[in-house]
Structure formats: structure tokens, C-alpha cells
């Protein structure tokens, strides 16, 4: 096994394109676990942390560009980012332990392609876009299109995610992410739900994106949930419709972490609770 730490995106792409046995190392919180579990035996590990920009959070067009090696802890400490997209930052902050937070990255969470990844529904709700470097240059791909199925992404050989872009938040907008786990921390989502919404001047929902995690082979953007609350104030009836739409959209399986019935039900419960938080944030209330 060889370790490489290229200084440029081009060098990293060259190393990754050279063979199928190359793995990207950013935080390493998934890769090292897989190495220890003997799930992977890489020929070469390409550490991207020394490439310029990978550790940076930069303002761009009213939004934020987050380098592929920025850790969850660094995101939590970034006041501007946390003010714009508290739901995404909180989702990233739920991954692993305090120690893992010092390493784990948004891009890594996305590329691990786990259906239960915490940051992914939050990013999808936020309309995040991944910037991908590869042998043919750079391309942008909506985060929702990156995971294909458990463990599989849309990345081509030689490609890696260089950054994730969170767009401008917009007026009277807020987001939130909640997950259900049997414990209080150090666990994996049984259901996750990200909600981003905007309100009109009258307090009615003008736009919304609702995404579910861990209830399908990949993240689910629930268009029907957004549709049902658009143009309405989030009263009890609207929240009940939102919950029902999410329960209906979930396509979970029975496994060691939960049952189909439980996951469908809790999809609705979390959507309702996350929407209430997102609405409060959109109104500028503390939540």
C-alpha cells in the first residue's frame, strides 16, 4: 500500500486515474474503518489535504464553498456558514464523536454513499452542488445526484469531489435537520430528515425542499411534501399533511436498525419537527 499527498488537483487526478486500487483520503473516518475491517485493500491512498483550497470555507455569490477536507468541527466554528445553513452544519456535527468531528468531512460523508449519511439530506434540502475534479476537468453535479445506491456514487474513475457549494440562503429562509437514533449520539440514522424552506411576507411557505435519509437506497427528495405545504402557513393541518407525504414517500426496509412501519412513521414525525424548526429560523426566531 502506497501513500501519496499531491499538492495539486491535477496530480491527485493523475494518481486516482492510474488504477482502480486508489482511494481518496480526506478525514479518513470512513476509509480507516474500512481498512481495519479489511473491507478494502487500497494500492494507493491519495491524501488530498495538501491541495490548496481543500481546507477552506469561502464566500461565493452569497453562498458558501466548502473545501473537501473541511471538517465538521471547522464548519461548526464558522459563524457565517452556521448562520446561513444551520441545518447543514448541525447535520455534519452529528457525525461520529467529538474526535471524529475533527476529521470527518461533508464530501467524505457524501462519497461514502451510505443511505443513512446525516449531512446528505440536509445538503439536498439546501440545494447543494458538488464540484467534481477529474481527468476531463471540473464539473458540477447536484448533491442529490451524487449517490446512486448504497456504496455507489456517480463519480467516474479518476474523479473526486473538490468542494461542496451551498447556495445563497435567500430572504426569510431557514433549514433544519433531525435524525432518529436509539441512543443520544455515536449512532447511525434510522431515519434522517432535512427541511429547507422560505416564507413569503405573510408567513406562508413560498418554497420548500424536504429530503429523507435512511429510508431508501439513497436520499429521497420528497417533492410531494414540498408541494403540500407550499402557499400554506405551517399550522397543524399543514404539518399533518407534510408528515403524511413524507411517510408515504419513504421506501424503507426492515433491518437491524428499524422496521418498515417504524421508519415510515418516524419519517413523518421528523419532517414535522424539522419543518417547525426551519420555519422558526426563517422568521428569525431562535431555534
Amino acid at each position: 500500500m502506497r501513500y501519496e499527498a499531491p499538492q495539486s488537483i491535477d496530480d491527485a487526478v493523475r494518481l486516482l486515474a492510474a488504477g482502480a486500487g486508489a482511494h481518496v483520503l480526506a478525514g479518513g473516518t470512513d476509509l480507516l474503518v474500512k481498512l481495519r475491517a479489511e473491507m478494502v485493500e487500497p494500492e494507493v491512498i491519495v491524501d488530498i489535504k495538501r491541495i490548496a483550497g481543500m481546507k477552506e470555507i469561502t464566500a461565493e455569490g452569497g453562498g458558501w464553498r466548502i473545501g473537501a477536507a473541511v471538517s465538521g468541527a471547522e464548519m461548526s466554528e464558522h459563524a457565517g456558514l452556521a448562520a446561513s445553513w444551520p441545518g447543514v452544519v448541525e447535520a455534519a456535527a452529528l457525525i461520529g464523536s467529538t474526535q471524529v468531528q475533527g476529521r470527518a468531512t461533508l464530501a467524505g460523508n457524501l462519497c461514502n454513499a451510505s443511505p443513512a449519511a446525516d449531512s446528505v439530506p440536509a445538503m439536498v434540502a439546501a440545494g447543494a452542488v458538488a464540484r467534481i475534479a477529474g481527468p476531463k476537468g471540473m464539473r458540477d453535479l447536484a448533491v442529490i445526484d451524487v449517490p446512486k445506491s448504497p456504496g455507489k456514487t456517480a463519480l467516474e474513475p479518476g474523479e473526486f469531489i473538490a468542494s461542496v457549494f451551498l447556495p445563497a440562503r435567500g430572504e426569510r429562509s431557514g433549514d433544519a435537520y433531525l435524525r432518529f437514533i436509539p441512543r443520544t449520539e455515536m449512532d447511525i440514522a434510522v431515519v434522517g430528515c432535512g427541511v429547507a424552506l422560505s416564507l413569503d411576507a405573510g408567513g406562508k411557505v413560498s418554497a420548500a425542499r424536504v429530503a429523507l435519509g435512511a429510508v431508501g437506497p439513497k436520499v429521497i427528495l420528497v417533492e410531494a411534501a414540498a408541494e403540500t405545504i407550499r402557499g400554506r402557513t405551517l399550522d397543524e393541518a399543514a404539518l399533518a399533511d407534510l408528515a403524511a407525504a413524507c411517510s408515504a414517500a419513504a421506501t424503507p426496509i426492515d433491518d437491524k436498525r428499524g422496521t418498515v412501519d417504524f421508519r415510515r412513521h418516524v419519517s413523518g414525525v421528523l419532517a414535522r419537527r424539522a419543518a417547525v424548526i426551519a420555519e422558526a429560523r426563517a422568521k428569525g426566531e431562535k431555534a
Partner: peptide, 10 residues
């Protein structure tokens, strides 16, 4: 991960 002993915050 999936054999869940309590953590301190539980």
C-alpha cells in the same frame, strides 16, 4: 455501532 451499549450522554 449496531450492538448498542449506552453512551455517557444516554
Amino acid at each position: 455501532l449496531d450492538y448498542r451499549i449506552p453512551v455517557a450522554s444516554d
